[in-house]
Design a protein around this nucleic acid. Structure first.
Lengths: 213, 213
DNA sequence: AAGAAACGATACGGTTCGTTTCGTAACGAT
DNA sequence: ATCGTTACGAAACGAACCGTATCGTTTCTT
């Protein structure tokens, strides 16, 4: 076989090389983009590290050097989109805030690879202790912060009892998860509104007979 | 041994043979028991068809002949315990019913392989269209029926608005899922009670302005 | 008696994961 | 300027798994 010492610069094979004893940002970008695209295209089922490496023109060791597990790669894909993600609404009404946030979140899940990435992370966490740890300690606290402050604000306005904010948040998160995991995150505005109103009613402090001890 | 010409029963190799042109219940039992045990012992992570076959002393084709996919096997494991499963409470109070049901369900998930089986089914459904279909069309309707009638009865008593029963059920299911998928199904009675009371409050018809009826 | 069906064992092809080895290339310190 | 360190991509490896096929055997059905 012929060894071309100057590999013909095929437009698609620039043969990205090391740039020295440090990370090559081009490789990182290419890997994240490949993972994102693959996830968007094939979903979790068709996602594999080998295919990501192939598409990125990267070596698998390069991937594993930076993202020690599949879960870490999912989190990175999610985080990359999260910057331009959902604006936390502040309309002065909890029900409106919740409905707005949910609609935006579901759209985010539908229209970017992030929904697939999150589903993949949840699934991966069921099979890997490492992924479960990453989910609970690195991922969830960040995601819950957004919605958490919506509830905190509502408690400040007296819309809900402050003591219930945490529990109501959990209930609402569960609602999101069920719909994501059963592939029912279509934009059903009526459903979203109904759920938001239910949550508000559940939290109304005046309707509680005795204060929740 | 009942079988006269049974070969010397090596304790680990009875070499279960065909009993003719029909299912061998012994094989079915052995496979389900092996799947159950493996799931209980290793969880979803350590679960494989090969290992089930090994433990059951069965051939893989025998497994695939009856359970065409892993999801079907998970459902079967879950269903095997469901007989002795959770009694649907009927105390006359929705909050008490919910709290009781949840405590029983979580104990069921903790103390049998069913929790692991359900987690496995949810994870599997994220990667396999077939599993997702089985989850939505074969599994969920059955599971939701139990809790559904608790809410229906509460609506009949006037505890909650009938129109909200379905949505409240969804909220409560989400609460269960989040705790199962994040491995937090410890028996926190205070948490369970709080959630049950929130659900009841969310559904109380008198607290709503005057929406329905 | 003949055939159909189920059994366990075994092997196979195809994937995927995560690791290891290899030769190359660029930076940092001396 | 040189040498050591580090990152790079390619390739291969071992292990595990899935789902299917083949084979000889056993037993029921017809």
């Amino acid at each position: 076989m012929n060894e071309p010492d100057t590999p013909a610069p095929t437009e698609t094979a620039p043969r990205r090389a090391s740039i020295g004893a440090r990370r090559n940002p081009a490789a990182e970008t290419a890997i994240l983009a490949a993972a994102r695209g693959l996830l968007a295209e094939k979903g979790y089922a068709g996602f594999s590290i080998d295919e990501v490496a192939r598409r990125a023109g990267a070596g698998k060791p390069t991937i594993y050097r930076w993202w020690p597990s599949k879960a870490d790669l999912f989190i990175a894909v999610y985080a990359a989109d999260k910057a331009a993600a959902i604006a936390v609404p502040d309309t002065g009404s909890l029900a409106a805030d919740l409905a707005g946030y949910t609609a935006a979140l579901w759209r985010f899940w539908r229209e970017t690879p992030s929904g697939a990435a999150f589903r993949a992370l949840l699934a991966e966490a069921q099979a890997s202790e490492q992924a479960m740890t990453a989910l609970r300690e690195k991922f969830l606290p960040l995601r819950l912060a957004d919605l958490g402050c919506v509830f905190t604000r509502a408690a400040g306005r007296g819309e809900i009892a402050a003591a219930d904010a945490e529990s109501l948040l959990q209930l609402y998160i569960g609602f999101h998860w069920v719909h994501l995991l059963t592939e029912r995150i279509d934009e059903d505005a009526a459903l979203i509104d109904r759920m938001a109103r239910l949550i508000v009613r559940a939290g109304r402090p005046d309707t509680a007979a005795p204060p929740s001890r």
